[in-house]
Write a protein that binds this DNA or RNA. Structure first.
Lengths: 200, 200
DNA sequence: TGGCGCAAAACTATGGAAACTTTTTTATTA
DNA sequence: TAATAAAAAAGTTTCCATAGTTTTGCGCCA
């Protein structure tokens, strides 16, 4: 029942943002009463927190799958590119910005977890890419891993990319495209060209 | 809630200076009402006072950390010097000096104008690079110009690049190196290689 | 028939948004 | 430079929506 409520809540949060969704909405969406919800959860904050955890776990799963399915660093980064592109949407932004503003503690926790996980994954990827000769040897993996994570923060920032002016998928594509081109070695470029042909 | 309000206030004070920030600003930033703020604090003066206390408490913490991490007096002095030097920035001075309201307008105008000027300049550069065949044709100049400006904001962001862990010049070099490698065409790479040789 | 579990509805308390009042700041003019 | 008006902001109040709690009614089952 708890899982059901969290799943249903996520569905609504993804559409409208956590702030705008009322407890009545959640109850109505699931065909249960608010009483039942409060029998399972302390308050709305707890639901949002747990929903955020589940959301994070889902993203983590995608990341792990991409890691598993990749034979080399270029493929991994490409898989992360393609898979992440499909997952981060305008509605993700609504949810993220909602958390930032109205649920700061939850957001801070989420952000820290995400940063740590993505950073470790990216760092590993960049290092193995250098070892494989696909990435340039003169790049600093730590700095670039942090930079790339930061680029996603910029993506969400209306000061840089107002929603009414830029298409989020276009921004993501440009960011990833630029990031990959910025680290590839000559060998890596050749590999990417070949790789793109085989997966097109 | 009080802590939340203080933290949020510090964020704004750091950006704009305490006197320039209105109670409406704080309420909007936090997604709460002024009523709620006044339920937790007597007046604006109290908020500024507490924010200042917290701010300097954080500074003190940094000093104590430097003290702890030092094995002898020389190292301590060095750490203190480096950490203090790294932490004092323009925004610190704004907060400490608590400049008049017009400063905010000037700062905002400066920031907006700076962004616009830099943006226009970058955009022009990217476009002519594409025309000259030195930059790839499939890049989006607007997005990349915004991205690059954002990257420099990340440079200053301690969440991504703590100053006690990364050297600013190293970060700048990596960012620029990555950015230029990310946009160059084959012809551009050849040109860059030749260019580097002639200016080495 | 009574107990149980749940939905729906009613209820209370509280915070947000907006309107309002008061005070301070700024701009204008003599 | 001082007086005055206007604008802006600090601080207060009102109304409403929602969170969270309690009550009522209903269906199901032993």
């Amino acid at each position: 029942m708890r899982k059901n409520i969290i799943t249903g809540s996520i569905e609504l949060f993804m559409k409208y943002g956590a702030k705008s969704v009322t407890m009545n909405d959640i109850a109505g969406h699931l065909g249960i009463s608010k009483k039942t919800i409060y029998q399972n959860f302390q308050d709305k904050e707890e639901i949002i927190s747990l929903a955020t955890d589940v959301y994070f776990e889902n993203k983590l799963k995608i990341l792990k799958e991409a890691e598993r399915n990749s034979k080399n660093a270029v493929e991994l980064l490409y898989n992360l590119t393609v898979k992440l592109k499909n997952r981060i949407s305008a509605t993700d932004l609504v949810v993220i910005n909602d958390l930032k503003k109205y649920h700061r503690e939850i957001w801070q926790k989420f952000k820290a977890k995400k940063h740590e996980v993505v950073f470790v994954s990216l760092l590993k990827c960049l290092k193995s890419g250098i070892s494989e000769g696909l990435f340039r040897k003169d790049i600093n993996p730590e700095i670039l891993a942090n930079l790339h994570i930061g680029e996603f923060e910029l993506l969400c920032n209306e000061d840089f990319f107002p929603k009414d002016r830029y298409v989020i998928s276009e921004i993501q594509e440009q960011i990833f495209d630029h990031f990959i081109h910025g680290i590839l070695s000559e060998k890596g470029f050749a590999f990417l060209a070949t790789y793109k042909q085989t997966t097109a």
